[in-house]
Design a protein around this nucleic acid. Sequence first.
DNA 1: TATTTTTATGATATCGTTTTCATTTTCCGA
DNA 2: TCGGAAAATGAAAACGATATCATAAAAATA
Lengths: 328, 328
Amino acid sequence: MTISDVAKMADVSVSAVSRYMNGGYVSEEKKERIKKAIQETGYVPSAHAQIMRTKRTKVVGVVIPKINSESISRVVAGISEELSEAGYELLLGNTGNNQEQELRYLKIFDQNRVDGIIFIGTMMNKEHEKLLKSLQVPVVLLGQQESYISCVYHDDYHAAREMASILASGKHKKIGFLGVSAKDKAVGKERYRGFCDALSDAGLPVDEKRVLQGEFTLESGYENTRLLMEQAPDTDALFCVTDTIAIGAMKYLRETGKRIPEDVSIAGIGDTRMSEMMNPPLTTAHYYYQTSGREGAKILLEKLKNPGLPDKKMMLGYEIIQRNSILL
Amino acid sequence: MTISDVAKMADVSVSAVSRYMNGGYVSEEKKERIKKAIQETGYVPSAHAQIMRTKRTKVVGVVIPKINSESISRVVAGISEELSEAGYELLLGNTGNNQEQELRYLKIFDQNRVDGIIFIGTMMNKEHEKLLKSLQVPVVLLGQQESYISCVYHDDYHAAREMASILASGKHKKIGFLGVSAKDKAVGKERYRGFCDALSDAGLPVDEKRVLQGEFTLESGYENTRLLMEQAPDTDALFCVTDTIAIGAMKYLRETGKRIPEDVSIAGIGDTRMSEMMNPPLTTAHYYYQTSGREGAKILLEKLKNPGLPDKKMMLGYEIIQRNSILL
DNA sequence: TATTTTTATGATATCGTTTTCATTTTCCGA
DNA sequence: TCGGAAAATGAAAACGATATCATAAAAATA
């Protein structure tokens, strides 16, 4: 079914049908006839022909490192809600944490298929900057803060600092840090900076043998805790940059007979569903993942409506969730 | 940049450039010139113009009830891997468990944008059947079994039956069931049937006051456990149709001072990351979510390559993961 | 050498819309 | 009653690619 079939059936011109669909001048009688023809044929305009003519795809590309991650899927849920309310569709680019794939998806989406891009960033480098600056369509970066682009992110520094100072204000003297690569500025660098400053405030040293970097996985948390406890067995608290890492740590500690929090206190960040269900429940910082997705989508949609708009930065707060994994 | 710009620059016809891109007859000299022109201009063909002409979008629509769910996001991860290897992209339709949205997305995707559809089903009814049968593009159903369509699903009946019989072969005599609506055939109906048959095999009754239906959430598991334990306080085991529900149940039991498994045994299904980290670790059935996504995508891609292919059904097994939430 | 087959070429139609444009009809106030 | 604005109309161009076609040149075969 094409527009000209409908036109023929309603005995009007193609232009009239197009105007009917898009709200132009059409007489009442023709409106009736066209309406009827459309109902009978079940005509639906070809999205691709429309896109070709109008250059508006009504699709937003979403580039993410990994879909089966609680935090990311929550962000995507927020994006998805906002987009669908605005009549946009969502093209997903799952990069598997592979930078090449990341750049590839950004390029493909830009060149072709989408009106705008939402990019959940992890490790950002010069290549990203160059590419992102060169894109034709507007982009919003989520989870990381970069000067040259619109972004929505959390206050990683203060979240980490406040959490670490809770640890430091207890009786803990030997606080370890389970982090990720500093190439991830938000999670790797800012949270570490917050941690260091909190310890420094409390007059506590940051002991290198208690600072480890790993991946965003439970397994990595487990393994790094093993390493850390082997090289610094008297560690009495562990600050973990994500809940998942914290849960890996708890698993190891439990298996080696350490009591939480009596022997070792644990703190995480993110407030995943799991953190609440742990034994003991994990003290963590709630992050507004879903909201960050919604807000990112909103910013993008505004820019789509009004391309002249300047870049927008949005920092989201956090909420410390006191549970029972820290000895106070 | 369009194909005719490139053609002009290389001083060849548009057809030659098109043939160059798609592998037709082009002389070596022209190939060189075209290659150079493409490099200089950074020309990339317009996907939408191609689609319009060829009718092949290289996009698969994926309709899901909820993205921020561990099982579903694992399925989507599998789909995403398989599609991207085959050069396909993924258009996501997140329905928020709303049937209207579900039908809407299926229609929109069908009418327009995609070559095929993967549909993660929950509650399937006649409307679904009618619509699914009428779609133009091939569809694969995931997570549910329906006669009229290709599908990939787990052996819910036997998984539930085996799990329930583990409960029944212990010293449990009063086994409760925390389920979901029977409109969800896989999770609501089949797992219940497996449960009932296992109890019956063991000569145990299925007591109505120990059978409750709820939602796929932790909160629902929590709340229904409260209800169940209030109306049947002597319940000594709980079969939960998902891990999430089981974890909600554990939360309630723990809060009311019941010991697991000494006072009440618990079983789940799904083997989510959380189940392993619970205290005690949850006995559950491992489901191959990611694999089911991959296989579903494979079936769809095959059908795309070879439209004549008949529907294909694929049942995946499961693996009982014995942990410590059941008193043996 | 003559003939067929393969390779190469570019003009043009086509996909299904929207947009522009020129023209006609209707409406309304002076 | 007239004139100008607003409303209505359809033909045709355009979007950017691929497919078809007719034709020419080169290569292979007889």
